[in-house]
Amino acid sequence: MATSDENIDDGLPEATPQPRRRRRELPFFALLAIGVVTVIAAGGWGIATVSYGGGAYGVPHQMVAWNATSEDSVSITFQVNSSTDAACLVRALDERHVEVGQDEVQVDSGLRDVTHTLRTTRQAAAAEVTSCRELES
């Protein structure tokens, strides 16, 4: 008669411990590289956004209206807010977005509404203020 201390061979193989599955982890340097690239991209995006708007380096300006008064000129109205005298670059484009006129407009300090007539080489389809900067005193 078998006692409880005896091993009973029931014909089944003994259970062997399964090796623990190791999670596939990224090496430290790969995570560090991803972090550095993310920080550089975010910083570049922020600098580009601020620079494009002219908020960091330029004078605040806003386009109000434009009117192609004739085939060789366009009238452009814009607003500038500057603590010192400023110079604004305005340009006109044709229907194919080719520049047909460009001029630098001097603006006195303060909040100013400016209307300028820009000479063009042919009929303008659009006009814009590309940038404004403070003039050195």
Rank of each mutant, 00 (worst) to 15 (best):
S4I: 15
D5A: 14
D9P: 01
D9G: 11
D10I: 09
D10H: 11
E14P: 10
E14H: 10
E14D: 13
T16R: 12
Q18D: 12
R20Y: 10
R22Q: 15
R23F: 05
R23Q: 13
R23C: 06
R23Y: 08
R23I: 11
R24D: 08
E25M: 14
E25Q: 13
L26H: 08
P27W: 02
F28P: 02
F29D: 08
F29V: 12
F29G: 05
A30G: 03
A30S: 09
A30Q: 13
L31T: 03
L32I: 07
A33P: 03
A33N: 09
I34M: 07
I34G: 04
V37I: 15
V39L: 14
V39C: 06
I40Q: 07
A42Y: 09
A42K: 06
G44N: 11
I47Q: 04
I47M: 06
A48H: 06
V50T: 10
S51Y: 07
S51D: 12
G53C: 01
G53V: 01
G54E: 04
G54S: 07
G58S: 05
G58K: 00
P60A: 04
P60T: 01
P60M: 04
H61G: 00
M63K: 13
M63S: 11
M63L: 14
V64T: 10
W66Y: 15
W66D: 00
